[in-house]
Design a binder for these strands. Structure first.
Lengths: 123, 123
DNA sequence: CAGTATCCCTGTTGATACTG
DNA sequence: CAGTATCAACAGGGATACTG
């Protein structure tokens, strides 16, 4: 009879099978959440959008040091992730509004927990 | 009298001044927390250490696809971050145990929230 | 106003092989 | 057993200049 290693999982930490992965996998919920907020500036953009819909220039004004390229790419990625919705009014000059989707708003508790954890670590 | 833009901050999202940054800054608690768990494989190593102290080979066995180089580097970084403690028993063969520090254990609620958020996003 | 287009640079990851 | 050493490959981020 061969040895068998039975690994016990802490259900409060890893409640479902998807988290019992032995390598980084998109199927792991932790990876899914990390992928949602991945990228420099991303959490700052999300924070600003949590206050409500914002125009492109309002977002840029709130983050003076971000380059157009990066802000545009961040917003495009957040759109592709289904976290942000973009609406452009026809006419000139162009006016574009970005706002969070329901999925985007679902990130609020995570941002709060990141903040709490960061403050804890400071001590 | 010049115009003045008064930005209102949601205290439940950004409770202290450290989060009201206009660029990625190590002073922001969110950045601190993200830095703690940054890096591929990192959350998996932390997850395994949440179950208690582990030897180097136990960690490697739990993550068969990680290379020695990356596992070693991950552990070194987690040590440098003050999240993991390393203890080596003298003698041969070497036996080394890794365990979470108090700071490392403080990450548990964040991992749980990452998991919850990831599951939410799946729907 | 709201973006694009280039180009470069640097850090991170990984494969493979070797060691006290 | 518990790592190091080396090197190659890649992706993300940023500076700058231009456009419908």
């Amino acid at each position: 009879m061969a040895h068998q290693t039975v690994r016990t999982w802490d259900e409060s930490l890893v409640p479902s099978a998807a988290g019992r992965t032995d390598r980084p996998s998109p199927d792991c919920p932790v990876e899914t959440a990390l992928a949602a907020i991945a990228g420099r500036w991303t959490t700052l953009v999300l924070r600003d959008l949590m206050a409500g819909p914002q125009s492109y220039s309002a977002l840029r004004a709130a983050l003076p040091q971000i380059s157009d390229k990066v802000l545009t790419e961040r917003l495009a990625v957040l759109r592709a992730r289904g976290l942000v919705h973009r609406s452009a009014e026809p006419g000139f000059p162009t006016r574009v509004t970005y706002e969070l989707t329901d999925a985007g708003r679902a990130l609020r508790p995570l941002l709060v927990e990141l903040y709490r954890t960061g403050e804890r670590l400071r001590r």
